[in-house]
Design a protein around this nucleic acid. Structure first.
Lengths: 207, 207
DNA sequence: TAAAAAATACCCTTTAACGGGTAATCTAAA
DNA sequence: TTTAGATTACCCGTTAAAGGGTATTTTTTA
């Protein structure tokens, strides 16, 4: 029997999942939440064994929530459910302990398949996610998380600052900023002119 | 009888709506789309009388799609379904001819109520939307600063496309795209390398 | 303490995106 | 129907950023 908890800030999507799952006899929805903090409460009270969670949520994002949950309840299988397929989000979610990752632009049937798969302790990844690319990066860069300095620079990039301005602000050379840029591009597996800025800006909306 | 078309880039949400509506005898879903262009095709082929559409979608956003649809088929009632409650998006959608506006973080039941309401030719607005504030704003903001073509190009810029790619997609020269870029920069009063991309991305999430 | 990771800095080349013009069509409104 | 606005297209030059390296110093961790 799957005791499922759902965390997702769009109530309409939760309602849809509930409609889908209420005919699945092996699945019982023990609770739903609209943010990460609510999810934690449900986990404590209702003891689900599978969780479907959005990444970007108010109050506490899915990554942080997953990390805390897996620390206390390592047996719970977490399935990430996100709008975005950015490598970093996937890797962070994996690092936090998630067993699967599906995108919102897939069908509910695939969601169901994913839930059943992770419930068995297996992993499930959306077909749109390039797992090999992830694997490659994750070996090289381990967690795929940017360093403190890199995040600092990324934040300034998101503010529209140029390498020169960033260098002045952080008291480092323009070359150094450029090196950080290039390293981030490599780690994140992105390419093209404005992609890093895009990433920097979208990141806010990702998590 | 309501002949309903749904446009929404998250298939999971479409599936949820379908599950909800399949028990409503007065509603028939005649088609679903994952982007604006698909929606236009469905409208032509299936002649729905009510449309539920996301605002932010690939290829063509819901505002543009609504505008085109209302021009050809003014009897169709359009219900906007969006993540965001920013005034500008609501106003643009109204200006495009939408009859209602609901947020994704509402329940599916409210979605159903909204569909039934707009189907009767009435208007339905999410309780989170301050209608009076909208009226005040819409007077002074006229119609939005950028032209149709410019917005089209801006949307592609937001997708990270280069001028070359945009030109290819719209069957115009790279110089033309650059001219549009420069005109937008001038009109919007921005400056600097990535500012237009920044603006494009911010705009996108405002909808 | 030795090894790994992070942060610093420079080299080179290429390219997309400004910034600043000019101008021909084409479309729609006055 | 004239005129204004929108769309198309090109010229020049400049610059920030990316893509490819290499390399030193500092900090952290095993």
């Amino acid at each position: 029997m799957i005791r499922l908890a759902i965390a997702e800030d769009h109530q309409s999507l939760i309602d849809g999942l509930e409609l889908l799952l209420k005919y699945e006899e092996e699945i019982e929805i023990v609770g739903t939440a609209n943010d990460g903090e609510e999810l934690l409460k449900i986990v404590q009270k209702k003891e689900p064994n599978v969780i479907v969670t959005d990444i970007r949520m108010p109050k506490m994002d899915g990554i942080q929530a997953t990390r805390l949950i897996k620390k206390e309840y390592p047996h719970i299988n977490v399935l990430a459910f996100s709008m975005f397929d950015q490598d970093e989000a996937v890797m962070q979610m994996l690092d936090a302990g998630a067993s699967g990752y599906i995108l919102k632009n897939t069908s509910l049937n695939e969601v169901l398949k994913a839930i059943l798969t992770v419930a068995e302790g297996k992993t499930y990844f959306d077909s749109n996610i390039n797992a090999s690319r992830l694997g490659k990066e994750s070996k090289k860069s381990k967690k795929g998380v940017l360093t403190k300095r890199q995040k600092e620079i990324l934040a300034l990039i998101a503010q529209g600052k140029t390498s020169r301005e960033i260098g002045e602000e952080l008291f480092i050379g323009i070359h150094t900023v450029d090196t950080h840029r290039k390293n981030m591009i490599r780690i994140l597996g992105i390419k093209g002119k404005g992609e890093l800025l895009r990433y920097a800006l979208e990141k806010k909306y990702d998590f």
